[in-house]
C-alpha cells in the first residue's frame, strides 16, 4: 500500500475539493434562480412558452450529461462563427463550458421538480391570495414560491447530491477537481487503488454534509408539512 503518496498529495486533493465545491455551488445557485422562473413559465397559460420549456427539460433530461458536456466543450468549435466571435475566449475555456453545461442540465431537472410541486399546491392557497387582491408578482413572491420551495425540499435535496456527483464528469474535460486529481495521481505514480478510494471518501463526506444540511432545512422550513400523530 502506498498511502504516503496520498499523504504527500493532500494539498492537491484539497485544491480538487475546492474546485468540486466551486462547480457544485456556482451551478446550483445559478440554476436555482433560473429554475424558479422556468417553473413558473412551465405552468403558464401561454402554450408557446410552456411547450418550449417542456422541450428544453425533455432534451436535457433525456440525454447523458457526458454527451451534453462534450457537445458544448468540443462541439461548439465546429462552427467558425463561434470560433471567431468575441465570446470565444470564454467558450474555449473548460471551466466556463463545464459550468454552462452543469447549469443547463441541473436547471432542467430542478425546473421539473419546482413545476411539479407548483402543480400540487393546494388551490385554496392561490385562491385566497387572489381573493386578497394580491398582484401576480406579489402572489408569486409571497405565496407561490415559498410554498413551492418547501414542498420541493426533499426532491431538490436529491438533485443537489446528483449535481455534486455530476461534477466528477468535469475531469473528462481536463478540469482538476477531486476525480481529476485522483486520475492525475494514478497516472503519475502508477497506483490504482489509493487515489480513487480517497476521492470516493471525499465525495462520501461531502454527500453526508449536504444530506444533513437538507435534513436541517427540512425540519426548519418544511416541518409544518409533516403529518403529526
Amino acid at each position: 500500500m502506498s498511502w504516503d503518496v496520498i499523504a504527500d498529495n493532500l494539498g492537491f486533493f484539497a485544491q480538487g475539493a475546492r474546485l468540486t465545491l466551486l462547480l457544485t455551488v456556482v451551478s446550483l445557485v445559478i440554476a436555482f434562480f433560473l429554475s424558479m422562473a422556468l417553473a413558473l413559465g412551465r405552468n403558464s397559460h401561454h402554450p408557446v412558452l410552456r411547450n418550449a420549456i417542456a422541450a428544453y427539460t425533455l432534451v436535457f433530461r433525456g440525454t447523458p450529461l457526458l454527451v451534453q458536456l462534450f457537445l458544448i466543450y468540443y462541439g461548439l468549435a465546429q462552427f467558425g462563427l463561434v470560433r471567431h466571435s468575441v465570446l470565444w475566449p470564454w467558450l474555449s475555456s473548460p471551466l466556463v463550458c463545464t459550468l454552462i453545461t452543469f447549469v443547463l442540465n441541473t436547471s432542467a431537472y430542478t425546473t421539473e421538480i419546482f413545476a411539479g410541486s407548483l402543480r400540487h399546491l393546494p388551490p385554496g392557497e392561490i385562491e385566497a391570495a387572489r381573493a386578497y387582491g394580491l398582484s401576480p408578482f406579489t402572489r408569486a413572491r409571497k405565496i407561490l414560491l415559498p410554498a413551492m420551495l418547501t414542498r420541493s425540499l426533499t426532491l431538490y435535496g436529491n438533485e443537489t447530491v446528483m449535481m455534486l456527483h455530476a461534477t466528477s464528469l468535469a475531469s473528462t474535460v481536463t478540469l482538476l477537481e477531486v476525480t481529476g486529481v485522483a486520475r492525475n495521481i494514478t497516472l503519475n505514480f502508477y497506483i490504482m487503488f489509493e487515489p480513487y478510494v480517497t476521492a470516493a471518501a471525499i465525495y462520501l463526506v461531502m454527500t453526508f454534509v449536504l444530506v444533513m444540511l437538507f435534513q436541517f432545512a427540512q425540519a426548519r422550513w418544511a416541518g409544518y408539512l409533516q403529518a403529526r400523530l
Binding site: V161, L164, H165, A166, T167, S168, L169, S171, T179, A182, R183, Y196, V197, A199, A200, Y203, L204, T207, F208
Partner: peptide
Amino acid sequence: IRGIPDLVMMLL
C-alpha cells in the same frame, strides 16, 4: 453507493 459519484464508482 448513493454517496459516491457513478464515474468514481466505475473507476474504483
